[in-house]
């Protein structure tokens, strides 16, 4: 049995990496292995934007991440610096910067890269998408 972590650095919608990451996460969670957490960095933070409207014909990846996190208690960690730079704001960050809108909420969490260091120290395998 191995401990996995996933790092997502690519934006949703521009290619299939997000979906690949999701299917990989599902596969790990349904195997004898464990998934320590999923960390979103660089353009990957757009996955955490709660204001994405999914066209009804396609798979709703945002909802997918949310369900996966709630079903498996798998943390969805978002780099706060990368996210705020791209306008993906938790309630705390919106207040800190005098912004009126909030579009990052649970189960996604805005955190520092230091949290990823902790995650990696507990993981045997990191897979980047």
């Amino acid at each position: 049995m191995a401990q996995f972590s996933i790092l997502i650095t690519s934006a949703p919608h521009i290619n299939d990496k997000g979906l690949s990451a999701f299917r990989f996460a599902q596969t790990v969670l349904n195997s004898e292995h464990q998934l320590q957490g999923i960390f979103f960095y660089q353009d990957g933070v757009h996955h955490a934007n709660a204001l994405q409207i999914n066209p009804s014909s396609g798979f709703d990846l945002y909802q997918g991440w949310t369900n996966l996190a709630l079903t498996h208690q798998c943390p969805l960690m978002v780099c706060v610096t990368a996210a705020t730079k791209r306008g993906v704001l938790s309630a705390n960050d919106a207040a800190d910067h005098d912004k009126t809108a909030v579009n990052l909420s649970a189960p996604f969490e805005a955190l520092g890269l230091g949290e990823l260091a902790v995650l990696l120290s507990q993981s045997d395998r990191l897979v980047q998408f």
């Binding site: 660089q42 610096t81 520092g112 890269l113 230091g114 990823l116 260091a117 990696l120």
Partner: peptide
Amino acid sequence: SAGQDALDFAMAMANFGQ
């Protein structure tokens, strides 16, 4: 920004003992 992002990533991991 990939270069800056790699650098920030490297420093953060090292700052946390990796």
